[in-house]
């Protein structure tokens, strides 16, 4: 089963919840950090025996001795990543989406592809928790290829928890796609509510079942709760504001070790999710 932990707004406690769920769940569990622009879950999981592999994308290479400057490559490219001059073609890898169009469109066979690194993946484990993290190389613009590479590590027979990037655009879509359930973490503030509504609309658009966790639930007003009630959204958990949680977070300690009295809350949160997924499936 795949459960994504997402939020419209950043900094609402998505990673805290994802790590806590991973550490309290029974049986084979894996945690995938798909927030590849700013991955942070490893700080709390502290995985051991890590192995790093490169994530590569395919970039066209033009053989100038064959190129006859027919311009087809530049014509098919929607991203202006390849130009055809009178004597040769030039490639701009940072604009390339690796669609392979130029390679197929070139009638002379002058274009081949080579792998170029765009990020890395690290795998490791800690106390039986399997951990996979993606990291986009600084200066690279497109995170979906790295996110997709992280998600390839999903195991069928495990509970897979996915820590998503914030927002509602392509990286989030790449992370939550094909998940069985999405846990949206928010906070009870106007910003939290506004961004939650966007996240809810996104999940509805994608047809994914979801529920809401309100973090620092007593630190704002009641508008998020009211919204969830009016929209008939499952409220999965309320986590009260707690200075001990904030301090543990700042030191990189996981919430389940620092504040063990919260463990039952995460257990019951997970049970609720299982119940809801069961309902969807039957």
């Amino acid at each position: 089963m795949n459960i994504a932990i997402a939020s419209g707004k950043g900094g609402t406690g998505k990673t805290t919840v994802a790590v806590a769920l991973a550490q309290t769940a029974a049986g084979p569990v894996q945690l995938l950090d798909c927030d590849v622009e700013e991955p942070n879950a490893h700080i709390f999981v502290k995985p051991e025996a890590c192995i790093t592999h490169a994530v590569n994308v395919l970039i066209p290479v033009v053989d100038e001795s064959i190129c006859d400057a027919n311009g087809k490559c530049s014509e098919i490219c929607q991203f202006n990543a390849i130009v055809s001059l009178k004597t040769k073609a030039m490639v701009f890898p940072e604009l390339c989406h690796s669609c392979g169009g130029c390679l197929r469109a070139c009638p002379t066979g002058a274009i081949t592809e080579e792998e170029q690194q765009t990020g890395i993946i690290e795998t490791g484990s800690r106390d039986g928790l399997e951990f996979v993290m993606g990291r986009l190389d600084v200066g690279q613009a497109m995170s979906p290829p790295v996110i997709r590479a992280v998600k390839k590590h999903t195991k069928q027979d495990a509970l897979t928890l996915i820590d998503c990037p914030p927002g509602t655009s392509c990286p989030v879509i790449a992370a939550v796609r094909d998940c069985d359930f999405v846990v949206l973490v928010t906070e009870p503030t106007p910003f939290g509510l506004h961004d939650l509504i966007l996240a809810v609309e996104t999940m509805r658009e994608l047809g994914l079942p979801f529920g809401v966790v309100i973090n620092r639930s007593d630190a704002g007003d009641r508008r998020v709760e009211d919204y969830c009630r009016d929209e008939k959204i499952h409220l999965l958990a309320m986590i009260p504001e707690n200075r001990k949680v904030a301090e543990a977070y700042s030191r990189g300690e996981s919430i389940t070790t620092a504040v063990p009295e919260l463990v039952p809350l995460f257990r019951s949160l997970l049970e609720k999710v299982f119940e809801l997924v069961g309902e969807v499936r039957t």
Binding site: F79, N80, A81, V83, L85, K86, F92, L95
Partner: peptide
């Protein structure tokens, strides 16, 4: 109004 790479395309057009 190109989404990206306006300068690249313009340069190509000028060169051609």
């Amino acid at each position: 109004n190109a989404a990206q790479g306006a300068g690249i395309q313009t340069a190509q057009a000028v060169a051609n």
